[in-house]
Amino acid sequence: MTVRVLVCDDQVLIRTGFVTIIDAQTDLEVVGECGDGRAAVELAARLRPDVVVMDVRMPVLDGIEATRLLAGSGVPDPVKVLVVTTFDLDAYVYEALRAGASGFLLKDAPPARLLDGIRTVAAGDALLAPEVTRRLVGRYASRVAPPPAADGSPLTPRELDVLRLVADGLSNAEIARALVLSPETVKTYVSRILTKLDLRDRVQAVVWAYRTGLVG
């Protein structure tokens, strides 16, 4: 199935580069592009993309607020958003996660990482740039709410093992190798974890792991 992508970036050269890279893939299709957050919200309502690739600093409406309107809590039909920015700043990650983004990448990442990120987010998983995962998500989690008691976790010991590795930023394939499991089994464990904890995606699972003291 082809993943429908909307690209939103106010820098024309960067936006054109993203569109060219994405459209060259047989399983990805750019259905629209724009240069500000307000246009992204309007286009997403009309085009219903699977993933919006969203810049942060833009005119009219910035990427964080646009993400909140597209994927935030209470949005009846949320769209998956992958935030891609040149700014490796704590505040942007915090706000992107709060707004409902399913992923965060830096613009200097290799094209292959961008493409993998779009596919990952479209599949219902979440993605954080390896450069920011542990450093920033840990700080974000500590600011969200007081941690609940970890011993009240409904997870099995094996599910806790998987969650620890998810929180370390490992992919399903890497977790499978570490625990000597098949990738399909790991995917099942991750899905079970999200269901038991009533979490939307891997980003929220990582936050939960930090808040409960499972990792830190």
Score class of each variant (00 low, 15 high):
residue 196 K to M: 04
residue 10 D to Q: 13
residue 85 T to E: 03
residue 81 V to S: 04
residue 201 D to H: 09
residue 133 T to P: 00
residue 175 I to G: 10
residue 8 C to I: 08
residue 40 A to I: 01
residue 135 R to D: 15
residue 67 T to Q: 10
residue 197 L to V: 02
residue 205 A to V: 00
residue 54 M to Q: 09
residue 43 L to I: 07
residue 68 R to P: 01
residue 14 I to V: 15
residue 76 P to V: 04
residue 112 A to V: 12
residue 152 G to Q: 13
residue 119 R to T: 04
residue 97 L to E: 01
residue 33 E to L: 12
residue 76 P to L: 10
residue 61 L to A: 05
residue 4 R to K: 13
residue 209 A to H: 02
residue 112 A to Q: 14
residue 4 R to F: 02
residue 210 Y to G: 09
residue 43 L to Y: 06
residue 63 G to E: 01
residue 142 S to A: 15
residue 156 T to S: 14
residue 196 K to R: 13
residue 143 R to L: 14
residue 73 S to T: 14
residue 155 L to G: 05
residue 8 C to G: 03
residue 184 E to S: 13
residue 106 L to I: 11
residue 154 P to A: 09
residue 121 V to N: 07
residue 112 A to K: 12
residue 3 V to S: 03
residue 176 A to S: 11
residue 208 W to A: 06
residue 43 L to K: 12
residue 158 R to C: 00
residue 215 V to S: 07
residue 140 Y to R: 05
residue 30 V to R: 09
residue 202 R to Y: 03
residue 158 R to D: 13
residue 115 L to V: 13
residue 203 V to P: 00
residue 151 D to V: 10
residue 157 P to M: 06
residue 17 G to M: 10
residue 108 D to E: 15
residue 50 D to T: 10
residue 82 L to W: 04
residue 3 V to G: 03
residue 90 D to C: 00
residue 174 E to F: 01
residue 182 S to T: 14
residue 4 R to L: 08
residue 48 R to S: 13
residue 41 V to G: 05
residue 189 Y to W: 08
residue 22 I to C: 07
residue 102 S to V: 02
residue 40 A to Y: 03
residue 169 G to Y: 03
residue 16 T to Q: 15
residue 162 V to E: 08
residue 4 R to Y: 02
residue 183 P to F: 06
residue 111 P to C: 06
residue 35 G to N: 15
residue 96 A to H: 02
residue 120 T to M: 10
residue 6 L to N: 03
residue 70 L to R: 01
residue 189 Y to F: 13
residue 175 I to D: 10
residue 121 V to G: 05
residue 77 D to I: 08
residue 132 V to P: 03
residue 45 A to N: 15
residue 91 A to I: 12
residue 75 V to L: 10
residue 206 V to S: 06
residue 99 A to C: 08
residue 180 V to H: 11
residue 138 G to Q: 05
residue 115 L to Y: 06
residue 205 A to L: 01
residue 168 D to R: 12
residue 32 G to P: 00
residue 41 V to I: 11
residue 120 T to R: 11
residue 86 T to V: 12
residue 58 M to N: 02
residue 202 R to E: 15
residue 95 E to K: 10
residue 126 A to F: 01
residue 100 G to W: 01
residue 70 L to K: 01
residue 140 Y to I: 15
residue 85 T to H: 07
residue 160 L to M: 14
residue 208 W to I: 03
residue 177 R to G: 01
residue 105 L to Y: 03
residue 122 A to Y: 05
residue 116 D to M: 10
residue 214 L to A: 07
residue 36 D to K: 05
residue 61 L to H: 00
residue 83 V to T: 07
residue 174 E to L: 07
residue 133 T to E: 09
residue 145 A to D: 14
residue 65 E to G: 02
residue 145 A to S: 15
residue 212 T to Y: 04
residue 56 V to M: 02
residue 124 G to T: 06
residue 61 L to I: 04
residue 186 V to H: 02
residue 7 V to C: 05
residue 69 L to K: 13
residue 6 L to E: 02
residue 2 T to W: 09
residue 198 D to E: 13
residue 29 E to I: 12
residue 122 A to P: 09
residue 188 T to V: 14
residue 155 L to P: 01
residue 45 A to F: 09
residue 185 T to A: 15
residue 202 R to N: 11
residue 58 M to I: 04
residue 167 A to I: 06
residue 199 L to Y: 01
residue 66 A to G: 07
residue 103 G to K: 03
residue 198 D to T: 10
residue 12 V to S: 13
residue 9 D to M: 08
residue 72 G to A: 11
residue 156 T to C: 07
residue 48 R to I: 07
